[in-house]
Amino acid sequence: MTMKPGPKYSAAVLWTLMILGFALVPVLMSSSYQLNLASHVLVWGLFAVAFNMLWGVTGMLSFGQALYYGLGAYFVGLMVEYLGSAWYLPAIGIGMLAVAATSFLLGLLVIRVGGVYFTMLTLAFGQLAWQITFKWYDFTGGDDGIQGITAPGFLQNPIAYYYFLLVLVMLSMWILKRMAYSPFGLMLRCVRQNPERVRFLGRRVRRNQLRVYIVSSLFAGLAGSLMAGIDNSIHTDMFFWTTSGEVILMSVLGGLNQFFGPFVGAVAIIIIEDIVGAWTEYWSLIIGSLIMGMVILFPKGLVGELHHLKLRMMQLKARRSE
């Protein structure tokens, strides 16, 4: 597994290109659909990258990250609904605090178990949260969801909101990336590869697992709360296991061992979903076959394969020049 930071300049180029690409969306394209699509991509990208900190880096496959995504969204939705849109920005912060508290408490329970049991326990908590949101009709609106969530002031303008979103998402990704390559990130990778050894070295496995669980959940919550302002409506779907499943798909498709893999996976899945969905009612057959093909042909994920291809090219060049 290769997760070394490449040469400094190439990473900088990549970041600039990505930020520039997303920043230009509102300038180049006038349609608010494309803006909406780009926003969805950003939010899901952040969610998937945060999720991958947990799985790809630390090896903890959670099937319940939708819990935090939904929590972030519902904090914003409910506070705007009951207290007014001035509470939009504070709600993002309060929501993140709530996510941190919840993930700390639940984390204590779920990290005690490993492997597939961790996966199942997170699924169970996620579904419990979904069921409660769904049932608590008088407060959460149940299956009807919450509509009319608008950000205050200048953020009401979709383009302004988009840039707000872009800044927050890129900032979060930068933080996550720094974290992934910090000593903490290295420790997490050791936790995945050889937990026994980590113990022998006098480091605490559980504590690191709990930390990364909270970090990952925190950014999942942020992604959820940002989503509330894009569609101006939220829905119990955001808590449902399919939402947790979707980030798993994105991560695997993009490549688990690459920092940007899940982000690329998110781009690919959302765009494929939209194009194929617009084209035929048999989207499920086509998307299923398409992704199945990619899974079988690209064992390292999209970014992983690209990386692999680049290495091969470099080797070839080196051999020729010899």
């Binding site: 790809g56 798993i248 695997v252 498709l253 079988i296």
Partner: peptide, 29 residues
């Protein structure tokens, strides 16, 4: 085709999820 891959579990989820999508549409057809 995916047995023995690194992160096999994830690929299993992804692949069987694709199976759900495909079987659902075949049944509908």
């Amino acid at each position: 085709r995916i047995y023995g891959r690194v992160n096999e579990g994830g690929f299993q989820i992804l692949l069987t999820y694709c199976l759900i999508l495909i079987i659902d549409d075949l049944v509908k057809l």
